[in-house]
Simulated assay, not measured.
Amino acid sequence: MMNDPEESDPAIVAMNLVNKAGSPAAEQGEPRAGTKGKADQHSTCRAQDRESVSHALDRIRQAARHRKREKFTALFHHINPEALRMAFYALKREAAPGVDGMTWRTYEADLDRKIADLHDRVHRGAYRPLPSRRRYIPKPDGRQRPLAVAMQAS
């Protein structure tokens, strides 16, 4: 329902439902006071979906920006299959194959198994990323831009 632009929308208030809703009702329902604060913002989710994973990582990014000297020691639980899946789908689909020769489409072909395997190796401590060779590229203003090139597995 649309109100006049100069009027506020009516508040939506939770109602205490009646116990016996017959005709006539045995008792009247009474309105409850509205909630205060951030009641509509959930701090936890029952299931970790894309939105909650993204929200959690945004909070970590903000904390890292504001507290630059802070050491984060409890981030391991954020590496879960859903976060790995989100990271995979954020990659460019038409990018060149990686140093292992695998394309985005090849990896996607058996994605669930590969994500489960990667998640397992990370949590067991068995995952070891390939080393990178670091080079610095001069910029026009005299500074240097770091560039990391993953080395081929031997």
Rank of each mutant, 00 (worst) to 15 (best):
R121H: 12
A25V: 09
A96S: 15
E27M: 13
R124G: 01
Y89W: 15
L118I: 08
V18P: 14
G125H: 05
L147H: 07
L118G: 02
M102A: 13
I60F: 01
D58I: 04
P10Q: 06
L84K: 01
R50K: 03
A74N: 11
A63W: 11
A25G: 05
I115H: 01
M2N: 12
G34K: 06
S23F: 10
P24Q: 01
A148P: 02
A33E: 13
E108L: 13
A87R: 06
R69L: 08
K36F: 05
L147Q: 09
K20S: 07
E7G: 00
E7H: 08
K71C: 09
A64G: 03
E70W: 05
D141S: 00
T106R: 09
Q48M: 15
D141A: 00
A64K: 10
W104I: 07
A56F: 00
A90L: 09
K114S: 08
H123E: 05
R85P: 00
A74W: 07
Y127K: 08
A39V: 01
K92A: 15
G125A: 04
D112S: 06
A25I: 10
R143C: 03
H123M: 13
A25F: 04
A39N: 08
A33R: 03
D112T: 10
R46C: 09
G29I: 01
D110V: 03
R59N: 13
K114T: 14
A90Y: 03
E108H: 14
P81I: 07
P10E: 02
E6L: 10
S23A: 09
G34L: 12
L147T: 13
V122I: 15
A39K: 02
I79M: 10
I79L: 06
D4Q: 03
A63T: 11
L111Q: 14
Q41C: 10
R121P: 03
R105S: 13
S43W: 02
R32V: 09
P138W: 01
E94C: 06
F76T: 10
K114E: 02
S132I: 09
